[in-house]
Nucleic acid binder design. Structure first.
Lengths: 216, 216
DNA sequence: CCCCGCGATTTGTGATCACACATACGCCAT
DNA sequence: ATGGCGTATGTGTGATCACAAATCGCGGGG
């Protein structure tokens, strides 16, 4: 039971592998809100001991992706309506700024890529693929924001996504969407036209649309 | 060498004690940018083993307060001008929103407390007390933002402060301030008058003032 | 039938250890 | 004197262990 030491493996550090694995699962909404996790369970799943599992969990807790009860138990957080409203407001603030900074650098190739991703989103919706929908939606936004050349801001936006992850999945179940996101069209149109005020409005609308129903 | 087990101590968990200790030192600018840290050194300083030290460091790295080199060495980060500009923009976005949300709840008692803190800031400046100045300045902002009743936003703002901590200390040395922060007066005045646009402008100015010189 | 309490099990915490790697120091050959 | 190399030291990583506390389940009493 010495877990392959390091031998000739590549170099994806153990605790980082666990972190990334949990992170994407949370961000994509593959874990239900309130679901409890155990360090030994995580370690077993990723074939590591408790130590790297603990580090990964600690990091996710620091990012707000996991909730740490007073007794040290970890679970994915159940967000209150107030917190959801705050996080939506943060998304609006940060992502509008990111989109605005990306606008001058948005070439036609980027816009075409966004349209391709958007088509994929429509497919996921048609197939009722919640996780795929969330993943594609985040890819749409991240692709745009990468052009902003603002890594610190992007990291902060992703932190917010992470916190909303489990809830977004639950939200997806509530609203029975059959249509593709209409605000994405507006975003693409504003990018093409170089219309900054229109872009800001479209991003703000897209980011806050779904979360309004949840708070009602 | 069994480190006092738990005996009759209260219950401030070990790794959390280390985390808080390092966090405030970083946020207050008591550690120079680029300064290297070792897990064993931290453990010795707080009288714990490497395990809690590692967890605290991991958490601070996750928050951007510490930099982790490719070989695993940790140090406080040396920020590029681009990153400083981003962080200043984030401060402006988030803190303007926080101030705006705090405005309707800003009673006279709060305003008086802000003025008291501001007087303390003037003292620190007169005494050339860099750390004291930073701490008092952050207290001024936090006191105001607490009224916004937006814990997630406040946490995000504090994360940005944390990332700027070591740099703010260096910044303090560059600009030889002798006058108390003039924008704080404007903030207080806007709060008294219930002037939201004025408040937003004053906060934005206060937050971005010092960092403009640094980027030049 | 429900509620309380006690014990077994689960779970997080922190210390310690073995190991791999990086760095730094010092010694020897040129 | 200087440059290169091998060793010693320091550092992070991850596994394992001992311990305390929390949680769960079961049984008895009301």
């Amino acid at each position: 039971m010495k877990a392959a030491t390091k031998s000739s493996d590549a170099l994806p550090a153990a605790h980082d592998r666990v972190y990334r694995g949990l992170r994407t699962r949370i961000m994509h909404g593959e874990i239900a809100p309130g679901e409890p996790l155990t360090l030994r369970g995580i370690g077993k799943e990723f074939d590591v001991s408790m130590t790297p599992a603990r580090e990964a969990v600690r990091r996710l807790v620091a990012e707000g992706a996991l909730f740490l009860s007073s007794s040290g138990r970890v679970s994915t957080p159940e967000l209150s309506n107030e917190r959801i409203e705050e996080l939506a407001a943060l998304r609006a603030l940060i992502e509008v700024e990111l989109a605005s900074r990306a606008l001058p650098r948005a070439h036609i190739a980027l816009i075409e890529r966004l349209q391709t991703i958007d088509a994929g989103i429509a497919e996921r919706i048609a197939q009722r693929d919640a996780t795929g929908y969330i993943r594609a939606n985040l890819e749409f936004h991240r692709t745009l924001y990468l052009r902003a050349q603002a890594p610190a801001m992007l990291a902060m936006a992703e932190t917010v996504w992470l916190q909303l992850g489990p809830t977004m999945r639950a939200l997806y179940g509530k609203l029975r969407r059959t249509e593709p996101p209409r605000f994405h069209r507006l975003i693409v149109a504003a990018l093409k036209a170089g219309d900054e005020p229109g872009l800001r409005l479209a991003v703000r609308s897209d980011v806050t649309q779904g979360l309004r129903l949840l708070a009602s």
